[in-house]
């Protein structure tokens, strides 16, 4: 089973299920997961003011599905603390469950699509794994998706998510503010596009103006980590004009396990306590060996 964390919700799914649909919205949204042949699970969320009256909600929902979607043989079910419904829509067996996430005040709905009959064991495993991902004491919150294990600042929101074959990119920030930005990237097929060294590539991707970037190379758990630090507050003994100063740090490396190039960059007006956490292996992890280095 593989752990995914999206929108502060964690879920464990079979290894061959991949996220093919996602939503960046925090109030209402959904993610769709598929095996190699079809969608298997849809996880949707909606911000609510309190826990719902499950009995009434499920009765209304059951009636709606029968009336509008033609659900047949529907009946109420319960698994791993989740209450739900099962029934057949067309040729597909579906089971759907609801749960209230108290910390986030979210109403979650998990809809399984079964190619044949319901796999109750798998259903129970998946539902039991769903939970809220709390914010850490250092103000970071985990996101796990598309092969990346990310710790993003909780005061930033997911502004952009780009997923293409061989490329996954998550950008966290604040709307209408360039001062706060965290970017996490995972890029594949490196031998086909990387012409120089990782350091050269990283220096060419700096998102801030840097006259004297401090570059360093570290070797951690067989990973050669290239790091660049730009501190514009110290450049002229203070903040630059127009208040564009701040800390910018970035790192990139090729993971020997999957051969992909990982890049993380962080831009902030001021340093924080979580800045002690290394970028590679701390804020962005590619594999077990790198994550184990920092516990």
């Amino acid at each position: 089973m593989t752990l995914w964390t999206w929108r502060h919700i964690r879920i464990e799914l079979p290894d061959d299920w991949e996220m093919l649909q996602f939503s960046r919205k925090t109030d209402v949204g959904r993610c769709g997961f598929a095996d190699r042949y079809q969608f298997r699970l849809e996880l949707s969320w909606r911000k609510v003011i309190g826990p719902p009256d499950y009995n009434r909600m499920l009765s209304d929902y059951q009636a709606k599905l029968e009336r509008e979607r033609g659900m047949e043989n529907s009946r109420r079910i319960a698994t791993a603390g989740w209450q739900g419904l099962e029934g057949r829509i067309g040729s597909q067996m579906t089971s759907r469950f609801g749960w209230y996430a108290p910390t986030e005040s979210l109403l979650l709905e998990a809809v399984f699509v079964w190619p044949q009959d319901r796999d109750k064991g798998l259903e129970r495993l998946v539902l039991a794994s769903i939970g809220e991902e709390p914010v850490r004491s250092d103000g970071l919150r985990p996101w796990r998706a598309f092969g990346m294990n990310v710790l993003a600042s909780d005061d930033l929101s997911l502004q952009d998510c780009q997923v293409e074959p061989g490329l996954a990119k998550l950008v966290f920030g604040r709307p209408n503010s360039e001062k706060f930005r965290e970017t996490f990237e995972r890029i594949g097929m490196v031998s086909h596009w990387l012409n120089g060294t990782v350091r050269e590539w990283l220096l060419g991707r700096l998102e801030v103006e840097a006259r004297e970037p401090q570059a360093a190379t570290d070797r951690i758990a067989d990973h050669q980590i290239e790091t660049v630090l730009v501190d514009s507050t110290n450049r002229r003994g203070g903040r630059s004009w127009f208040g564009r100063g701040g800390c910018y740090r970035t790192a990139a490396w090729i993971c020997p396990t999957d051969g992909r190039l990982y890049r993380i960059s962080e831009r902030r007006p001021t340093a924080r306590t979580s800045d002690n956490l290394p970028l590679a292996g701390g804020r962005l992890c590619c594999c077990k060996s790198l994550s184990e280095t920092y516990g």
């Binding site: 649909q21 769709g32 042949y37 079809q38 699970l41 849809e42 809809v111 699509v113 190619p115």
Partner: peptide, 14 residues
């Protein structure tokens, strides 16, 4: 397109 729609399978194509 949502995951819950019938016949959302690409098996035939594969």
């Amino acid at each position: 397109v949502t995951a819950q729609e019938p016949d959302q399978s690409w098996q035939k194509m594969l």
